[in-house]
Design a protein around this nucleic acid. Structure first.
Lengths: 115, 115
DNA sequence: TCAAGTACGGATAAATTTACCCGTATTAAA
DNA sequence: TTTAATACGGGTAAATTTATCCGTACTTGA
């Protein structure tokens, strides 16, 4: 496992937000789970561009950041579900408004951001 | 200069937002400029933890993403100012609400995010 | 018994971001 | 004429994130 060498900075609230939300697939994961796609296998099929390994890692981070809870039925074969915590739920409107901004300005942004 | 090897993904609006806002010092920069700290030297003194070089690079990206404009007086000695574009201004309320979320949950998040 | 489905994780490579060190040029003031 | 201030950028190292490849264990159905 990778060990950080410099401390995370959390001076302002936005850094806290970024810290939680940063990660190539985290928003997708949160969004999927919000929409009822809650099992690892389902998530992987829904986000096929990410490898299983990466999704697993990012899910783990979201859990450790208090955004998700992992529900393990401890059955064999295994069954696992992820759910949003209260904190995770509180993120949804923020994500929505942020996405709204992006969509509203997509036309301008697409040109500038790509490449 | 670094050359990307994989394309930027812009499927949803939030990715567009993230693409613009990601970068260790970008939010600080936007915030400073919004608050009237608009010259490179000032910015560097305001954000001493970042090297000049990094700020310069991130400012350049913000310009290329349409968030800032660079106003060069073309004098000697040089005088340069950065200003928010309309698009950049439209980012301010989003940043505020995002930061608000972080502050509201700071107590929980600080414990979980640090380390 | 073999293939496919469930899920997890170590080790390491590749990509990307951030930091550091070097240097350029001009002007005003000490 | 040296020092400090203005501003910019190349080249490369270090840190971090993401991807790839390996393997584990158990169960159900063909």
């Amino acid at each position: 496992m990778y060990k950080r060498k410099t401390p995370v900075t959390v001076d302002c609230g936005l850094h806290l937000f970024m810290e939680v939300v940063n990660g190539k697939w985290k928003i997708n994961l949160i969004w999927c789970i919000y929409n009822g796609i809650i099992r690892p296998g389902e998530l992987q099929r829904k986000i096929p561009n990410a490898t299983r390994r990466v999704l697993e890692t990012q899910l783990k981070q979201l859990v450790s950041h208090g955004i998700l809870v992992k529900k393990d039925y401890e059955t064999k074969p295994p069954k696992v579900e992820y759910h949003l915590t209260e904190l995770g739920e509180s993120l949804i409107p923020i994500i929505k408004s942020t996405a709204k901004w992006g969509e509203e300005n997509r036309e301008i942004l697409e040109k500038l951001v790509v490449n």
